[in-house]
Design a protein around this nucleic acid. Structure first.
Lengths: 349, 349
DNA sequence: GTGAAAGCGCTAACAC
DNA sequence: GTGTTAGCGCTTTCAC
């Protein structure tokens, strides 16, 4: 049947394209195997045949069908991105949480530069599971928490994945990259101390991801060093600005600290609001800083000092690792990147 | 061969999963045809068989392979997103251009809610073309410009697509949605007039997309109505804040207008900076506003009044249309959504 | 009402 | 060196 242009796009969708390997083979006067080998640099073909086939294929504008190729156990040229923090938040577009939007943008552009497409995938463990989910070449999972089911699923399926932020409780897992949170924490704390703060309160989130855990540990270490009593106020990420504002009351009631370090920008904005509303001046009476820069931090008055993540380097490292894994190589990992501290008015004395 | 669990994941990747239709068929004691029909609601099966097959499939955790299914001309459950403005900018993560990051986030979350995956795809007309690009069910193309090659390619391929913003020069094309730019333009202009502005300059970008064109037209209409002389300063989008700052010199040289309306937030921030640097007070001496809210607009001092886009409604409309197209139905389109004007200090008298 | 069989476009053994 | 052939997992005629 069908002796003209064969294939899906031929009789299926449009008018053009849908040129198949068959068409190229016929036109080049060779077998489809030859075409496949020529275009994939496999097998043993004479340089001449190879060149000829390539020329014909180019001329016809042939593009191998990714589906058929994928079906044959090759790779799809696409990786998935799962944002666990947003899964946890239950909202994929929370206002003012631009760190993730930036991460997505950077991930998309860098994937592209490496010839990969990026597919945004929601929590893989909850239906409806996106059809292509298990056909992707690999995954980037951001901020997995302890015993993360998404990680477990990928593991079970044998799908290569890397995590942005070490998966807590998995000391043997090495395929991750992240900013050096412990170093960032020391940086902020040193800055606060330099501004005269001694009694520093920490406001971490409740997700059990490496970010929360590592900051907390660095904070505790510092307290131990200084002989200071730790003051930790856990606050669920989802409570946002309001949660921070409400928490300010409790903090004040227990004695105004010299500084408050909030892990999320929204909490920091809320805490600062709450403090100010209670007559506690920032940075006059106490300092406020956040471990993740966000629009809320930048637009608060005074502007809130913040650790600015480094999505460009982190995504680059993650893709390096992931591509190595997909290629079956042993990646050089984990990799730590450097975040920057942005001193703003909220900690300026 | 292979009488255990067959299939790709079986002998290919992991340990688990990769349950194929064959496995289900064997376990249910029926043919694979029966399984296919039962699970897709096709063919003529007895209710009992159907139910039994479904039960077995569920129990086994069977998920049809999207690749194989796609190969057989079904749908992939995934749509592509092409951001033309960013293609034009040559930078997928420009600082402060958060409108697109928001759009991506909203598009991802809403697609998910409809059981679609979203794949970010770069300029389809430039190699390397992402392998899956032509296998996707449809596309959302944002801000296509006149004679857009991406649109032409999709058209030629017969791939369903919708555009965010009318494709200029294609009056017959109806599969688009967007904020009502003309209405937004009138809103801003009316606001500026209410603040006493009579001589208003317009700073559009140079991309020939509907957004630039429609604002310009609305502006010209207003000038005609009022008998005012139009003052238009075209400025390439990519020039960003610096471009705006530089332009301010030219604007001042030609006489300080009562107000400047910039289409991009970065231009507005730059123009305001440039004006201020030249001793032209904002909002004292002249007003500044932008047609697209951005971080630059919000964080400028004074904060710049801006039209805030409505990605939630727009993306919803786009997906409605796209899903209808994919289903072969005639969609209800085009659809206009409502943007909001945010009055800020830069236009407050 | 049910199932055998023919592919979708491609890759990879394995002959020639 | 090159081509034949057997599938990947699925959908879909078309016999039974």
């Amino acid at each position: 049947m069908r002796e003209t242009v064969s294939g899906r796009a031929g009789g299926w969708r449009g008018t053009d394209a849908g040129i198949t390997i068959k068409d190229v083979a016929r036109r080049a006067g060779v077998s489809i195997t030859a075409v496949s080998h020529a275009l994939n640099g496999k097998g043993t073909l004479s340089a001449a045949t190879r060149a000829h086939i390539r020329a014909v294929a180019d001329e016809m504008g042939y593009e191998a069908d990714a589906l058929a190729r994928g079906l044959r156990r090759s790779t799809m040229g696409a990786v998935g991105l799962v944002l666990r923090s947003l899964d946890a938040l239950g909202d994929y577009t929370p206002a003012g949480v631009d760190a993730f939007e930036r991460f997505v943008g950077v991930a998309a552009s860098q994937s592209l530069a490496r010839g990969l497409s990026l597919m945004l995938v929601p929590d893989l463990t909850r239906p409806p599971v996106p059809p292509l989910a298990f056909s992707l070449d690999g995954y980037i999972v951001t901020d997995p928490h302890r015993d993360d089911p998404v990680v477990a699923l990928l593991e079970k399926r044998g799908i290569p994945y890397v995590t942005y932020g070490r998966p807590p409780g998995r000391p043997d897992f090495r395929h991750w990259a992240a900013e050096d949170d412990a170093a960032s924490a020391r940086l902020v704390l040193a800055h606060l101390e330099a501004a005269g703060a001694r009694d520093i309160a920490l406001v971490p989130g409740t997700d059990a991801n490496a970010w929360n855990l590592d900051y907390r540990q660095a904070y505790l270490d510092r307290c131990a060093e200084r002989g200071a009593a730790p003051r930790i106020y856990e606050l669920p990420e989802r409570t946002g600005v309001e949660g921070g504002a409400a928490l300010a009351g409790r903090i004040v009631a227990e004695g105004v600290p010299d500084a408050v370090l909030c892990l999320t920008g929204r909490h920091a904005a809320g805490v600062q609001q709450g403090l100010t509303a209670r007559g506690i001046g920032v940075p006059g009476r106490t300092l406020v800083a956040t471990a993740s820069d966000s629009e809320h931090a930048r637009t608060s008055r005074p502007a809130i000092s913040a650790v600015e993540l480094n999505p460009v380097d982190s995504v680059g490292a993650l893709l390096d690792i992931l591509q190595a894994l997909i290629a079956g190589e042993e990646p050089d990992s984990p990799r730590l990147t450097r975040a920057r501290f942005r001193a703003r008015a909220s900690t300026r004395r």
